[in-house]
Design a protein around this nucleic acid. Structure first.
Lengths: 131, 131
DNA sequence: ATAAACGATGACATTAATGTCAGGGTCAAG
DNA sequence: CTTGACCCTGACATTAATGTCATCGTTTAT
C-alpha cells in the first residue's frame, strides 16, 4: 500500500510516517515511480511505534529495541526492559521536580492569600475597587 | 555596575541577563560607550526573575506581573495570583500525564518480568546466556 | 489530454532559555 | 602602543516531533 492509505489506517500523519522512516524505525520498499510501498505488516508496525511514543519514549529509544520487538513478542525482547526502567526513572525525576514546583507555588499562593486578607482589612476603607 | 559584575553577583549568565532584557524583564541604562549600566537594585531584580523561573514560570508570565512585583511586595500585587493558579493547574496536568505514563511503564515492566520468568522456565535448557 | 488527487523532496516553523561564535568596539595597565 | 579583559550586536545551535509550504512528478478518471 502507499503512504496515504497507511496514514489513514493508522492515524499517523504522512509527515510522521516519513519522519519515522528518517529515524530508521520503518523501511518501506520503493516502487519504480519512487513511491513508498508498504506491506500490510506496516500498519501494525506504525501502531507499535505510536504505542511506544505514547509511553513517552523517544524515537531513538524505540529504535534501540524495535528491530527486536518487531520480530519477537515484546516479552521476549530483553532490550526493552532497560529502556523502560531508565525511562521510568526519568519520569519519576520529572514528577519529583514538578511536585516540588507545585509545593512552592501552593506555598506562595497560601502566603499571598493570608497576607492579602490582612491587607484588605487594613485598607478596607480605601480599597473600594477590590471587589 | 556592568553586566559582567551583575552576572557574577547573581549567577545568571551574561547571555541570560541580555535575554531577560530582550523579554522586557529588566531595562538597564546605557553608558556613553554603549555598555549596559545597572543599579545595585538590579541584583535583586535578577534574583527575583530567577526565583520565578525556578517556579516554572515563563518569562512572558513573569513579565505580566513583574512591573508590579518590583515596586510592591508580592503580597500586594494582585496580578501574581492568577498567574500562580493557572501555572499550578498546568503543572498538575503535567503531573497527571506523567503519572499515567509511569503507570503504563510499570505495567509493561511487570508484564515483561512475569512473562520473562515463564519464558526462562520454558527455555531454561537453551538459555545459557541469560545469566 | 487535462484536471484532480496523490506522492516525493526539501525547507522552514514551532518552543524556551541558553550556549557559543564571529567580528567588532572600549578601556586599563604595562 | 599593545595586550588582555571586558563589552557590544547579530546570528546560529540546541531538542523533538510534527505542521505546513513550495515545487515537482505520477496516476487516474473523465
Amino acid at each position: 500500500m502507499k503512504i496515504g492509505q497507511l496514514s489513514k489506517l493508522t492515524g499517523a500523519s504522512i509527515r510522521s510516517i516519513r519522519y519515522y522512516e528518517a529515524q530508521g524505525l520503518i523501511t518501506p520498499k520503493r516502487s519504480d515511480n519512487g513511491y513508498r510501498e508498504y506491506h500490510n505488516l506496516a500498519v501494525e508496525q506504525i501502531r507499535t511505534i505510536q504505542f511506544y511514543l505514547s509511553l513517552g519514549l523517544s524515537t531513538e529509544q524505540i529504535a534501540s529495541f524495535l528491530h527486536c520487538v518487531l520480530k519477537n513478542k515484546e516479552a521476549f525482547c530483553r532490550d526493552v526492559l532497560p529502556v523502560y526502567t531508565s525511562k521510568l526513572a526519568e519520569i519519576e525525576q520529572q514528577i519529583q521536580t514538578l511536585t516540588q514546583m507545585k509545593s512552592n507555588l501552593e506555598e506562595r499562593i497560601r502566603s499571598i492569600r493570608s497576607e492579602e486578607s490582612i491587607y484588605k482589612e487594613a485598607t478596607y476603607h480605601v480599597d473600594k475597587t477590590s471587589q
